[in-house]
Amino acid sequence: MPTRGTGDYAAGMAREQRVYAVVSHPEVRVHVRDLGLACCAVEFASAIGRGLLVPAEPSTSGAAVLVVSGTVTDALAPEVIAAWEALPEPKAAVSFGACSNSGGPYWDSYSVTKGVDRVIPVSTYVPGCPPRPEALVDALVALVVPA
């Protein structure tokens, strides 16, 4: 019988770390792992598709950012923890969208985790259902550039 919560699934999804430059803030370079669990992940892709983020050469400094976009279910929560733990320090987690922030429309569900912050530490919460692609950029800039 296969065991659950091995981390293979989510860690595999987030294995590929990509480096992006923020077009509106050329000095900002982010090492991003996208953990797309539901429809908010489309907005992440859209940020790249619309040219808000462009692929860049890795920089030696800077934190790795895990972007959790979408609905975290209790069954998948161990995989999210595994993906977070697999990320090297220094690191930060961005919760992208209502589901990941609090459970969102599924806050009363029997199967949905009431916010990814119940299982991993979150540095920035992005509101929206879904948030605009621009809101992802806002959050990454807020995370990297001190106000």
């Binding site: 922030n101 609090s102 916010g115 912050d117 540095s123 920035t124 919460y125 992005v126 509101p127 929206g128 948030p131 605009r132 621009e134 809101a135 806002d138 959050a139 807020a142």
Partner: peptide, 12 residues
């Protein structure tokens, strides 16, 4: 308006 992320859930 879309630029209002928060550092904690209370901030939303």
């Amino acid at each position: 308006e879309h630029d209002y992320p928060a550092p904690d859930a209370q901030g939303l």
